[in-house]
Design a protein around this nucleic acid. Sequence first.
DNA 1: TTAAAATAGATATAAATATATCTTAATTTA
DNA 2: TAAATTAAGATATATTTATATCTATTTTAA
Lengths: 210, 210
Amino acid sequence: MKNKKFSQIDASVPTIRRLPSYLNVIRRALNNNLKVISGTVIASELELEPIQVRKDLAVTGIVGKPRVGYDVKELKNAIESFLNWDKQHKAIVVGTGNLGTALIGYPGFKQNGMNIVCAFDSSVDKIGKQILGVEVYGLKDLKDKLKNEKIDIAILTVPSEVAQQVTELLIETGVKSIWNFTNEKLKVPEDVLVLREDLSSSYAVLSVCQ
Amino acid sequence: MKNKKFSQIDASVPTIRRLPSYLNVIRRALNNNLKVISGTVIASELELEPIQVRKDLAVTGIVGKPRVGYDVKELKNAIESFLNWDKQHKAIVVGTGNLGTALIGYPGFKQNGMNIVCAFDSSVDKIGKQILGVEVYGLKDLKDKLKNEKIDIAILTVPSEVAQQVTELLIETGVKSIWNFTNEKLKVPEDVLVLREDLSSSYAVLSVCQ
DNA sequence: TTAAAATAGATATAAATATATCTTAATTTA
DNA sequence: TAAATTAAGATATATTTATATCTATTTTAA
Ligand SMILES: NC(=O)c1ccc[n+]([C@@H]2O[C@H](COP(=O)([O-])OP(=O)(O)OC[C@H]3O[C@@H](n4cnc5c(N)ncnc54)[C@H](O)[C@@H]3O)[C@@H](O)[C@H]2O)c1
Ligand SMILES: NC(=O)c1ccc[n+]([C@@H]2O[C@H](COP(=O)([O-])OP(=O)(O)OC[C@H]3O[C@@H](n4cnc5c(N)ncnc54)[C@H](O)[C@@H]3O)[C@@H](O)[C@H]2O)c1
């Protein structure tokens, strides 16, 4: 069952996933006032093959100079633009427990265009309070809150047992992209994109390979 | 640059990564007192292809019955055994900030054999205190603490800027597996396994595909 | 001024991963 | 009891992803 949603772009998902680490290297180069950087240098910093880096960067439309490399500033802009990280994205966090709180407190998101505009929880202990400047609302206020404000991403960090029912509520309110940190496989309509962040699958790799 | 460390097992990394979600389905089936479960059923629950599920399950050595499926209990044991989730793993958390705290508080790890035995931080505010029953020590006590206790996994949740230097300390103390939640590409010797948990790469997929 | 070296970009190949097809065994039901 | 059905398991194929090779361009230096 091929997921069409992830294949609308002329770049493979592995390529998209590597771009942020290139951006890290490039931003650092920019801080060090480097004017140009070659794919070879990026590759060696990240222990990748130069060919792969060049091919990945090509999807952003960047054009480099043989024997020189890419203009650092231009390359940074090309990647950020390709990733849409030069535009603002509105996000909400649903479930402000341990993990939800950690994600709200992470400054790396804002740096790449993601603004957590507010959060939702079902616990009376949390509703009405703020977490690092982010207001927490009751889940039943969701529809009302999102009526006038279009949300780009819902970050789902509720207990796995309620994940599906909360998801259905999110979809009712028009959410089209869900970043799912729960262990639940979410059932959603065709036009809703779910990205699963599955820590247990990473732990599996560690357990098997050690 | 092929990473040999991940290719010592006769299962591909994608296969290993899918096994935990099969286990979720199977554990639920066991709770519902089901005796047998077919690959087809697992596949439909997870929106995967039956062929893929069967092929994945085959790496665990499980043998099913045509027209019937797999014995649920046997299948659960086979996966847990393959993943080494039936054995105990000792882990430490290094950096008890937002994310480190969230990971310490996550019960899903213990359920799969991972015990966080203690944590380390450099902040005097945290050293000597407990986080959900887990003692926090100073980073300079690391060597001393790990002298007698072999650690299977170090969970790295320090600020990215100090990630490399903390990693070097971990390696000095004999750590061989690092679960890296920082944005830093860690430079480690051949025999040290690093698994990168890169949230920005997931965010990139969301940003591009929406 | 010209040869050598390094690197982008294009094209071709290889490796890894996923999917399809076929065969055989277990079960149900006509 | 035999035919139909379903699913595992094996083999074959297709797709995706990564890597290698080749060419052209730019720079450096002999
Ligand atoms: N903490 C981790 O490191 C970690 C790791 C892997 C996966 N996860 C998954 O992430 C999710 C959250 O984990 P956590 O550790 O933050 O759990 P948590 O219990 O700390 O937080 C869950 C939060 O969700 C809220 N909540 C409960 N029901 C709700 C509902 N119906 N609507 C809205 N909010 C509701 C609770 O009040 C709580 O604040 C879980 O599904 C967990 O399996 C967490
Ligand atoms: N919070 C998130 O959701 C999130 C998301 C993606 C990535 N990350 C990454 O995870 C890491 C931790 O994030 P966080 O939000 O928990 O940060 P944080 O600032 O809340 O926590 C960092 C902790 O590390 C400790 N620390 C600092 N220097 C140390 C040292 N040399 N040795 C030991 N401990 C030290 C600090 O005292 C603090 O407790 C960062 O690298 C961050 O980029 C976090």
